[in-house]
């Protein structure tokens, strides 16, 4: 299958005063279309940095990151923004919804930024997604009126509304209880199967990894290995 993400020897260093702090130390990774991949590792292992590079919100210090066939180092700021807008959806750990907009408006926002669809077309797509994430009756609510699980469903709907090829989720269940988290992952998995959308999500939770096709493990900014969820669970002495 065709790779939608191709990371080659990616290095990312952060500078804090005179100190250079390496976050990624030469990571190489391919993600194929339709994958449902977990990036696992302890805090500080480089999960979020890798997602930021793949999500085009940051660029590598050296090495390369290709997304949908485009080398992010060669793109201007405007082109990177367009790539994020048209190709990538984001789901954040803290949901990151616009607090002053309603649920429907939050979901519709990326479509408005794209300026491709007419008003009725946008309304139809928002309505279908609300139905899909089980929030049909919450369209006019503000995010502050929703539970954590409901907010993350809104965030998923917002990430999917542009029908992106790739959805990146940074610890999407970290702020949710285990039952709600499992529901969210089931929803993501279902959308992955039905919409053929590629999902890459970071986690250090073994039960979350269990939903993935494969688990990429990072430690100290390096890619350790790529294993199945069962192997990852077995190594941690947990049932698969």
């Amino acid at each position: 299958m065709k790779a939608i993400v191709s990371v080659r020897e990616a290095v990312k260093n952060y500078t804090l005063g005179n100190v250079v702090v390496p976050a990624l130390r030469g990571v190489t990774l391919d993600v194929v279309e339709g994958d449902f991949l977990a990036i696992a590792g302890p805090s500080g292992s480089g999960k979020t940095t890798l997602l930021n590079l793949i999500g085009c919100v940051d660029t590598p210090t050296s090495g390369s990151v290709e997304v949908a066939g485009k080398d992010t180092r060669r793109l201007s700021e405007r082109e990177l923004t367009d790539l994020r807008l048209h190709t990538i959806g984001f789901i954040f750990q803290s949901f990151n919804l616009v607090s002053v907009l309603t649920v429907s408006q939050n979901i519709e926002l990326p479509l408005l930024l794209q300026r491709k669809l007419t008003g009725p077309e946008r309304a139809q797509r928002v309505s279908a997604l609300l139905e899909r994430v089980g929030l049909r009756e919450y369209g006019t609510h503000r995010p502050s009126e929703l539970s954590g699980g409901q907010r993350q469903r809104v965030a998923i709907a917002r990430a999917l509304v542009t029908r992106p090829q790739l959805v990146l989720a940074d610890e999407p269940t970290a702020n949710l209880d285990s039952v709600t988290g499992a529901h969210i992952l089931d929803l993501m998995r279902e959308l992955n199967r039905t919409e053929k959308t590629t999902f890459i999500f970071s986690t250090h939770d073994q039960s979350v990894m269990a939903h993935a096709n494969a688990v990429v493990r990072l430690a100290d900014g390096k890619l350790v290995d790529r294993v199945t969820p069962a192997q990852a669970a077995a190594e941690n002495g947990l049932p698969a």
Partner: peptide
């Protein structure tokens, strides 16, 4: 953070 989110989901400068 809201600015960062909006920029991430594709809002131009």
């Amino acid at each position: 953070r809201e600015i960062g989110t909006l920029r991430a989901i594709g809002m131009h400068r």
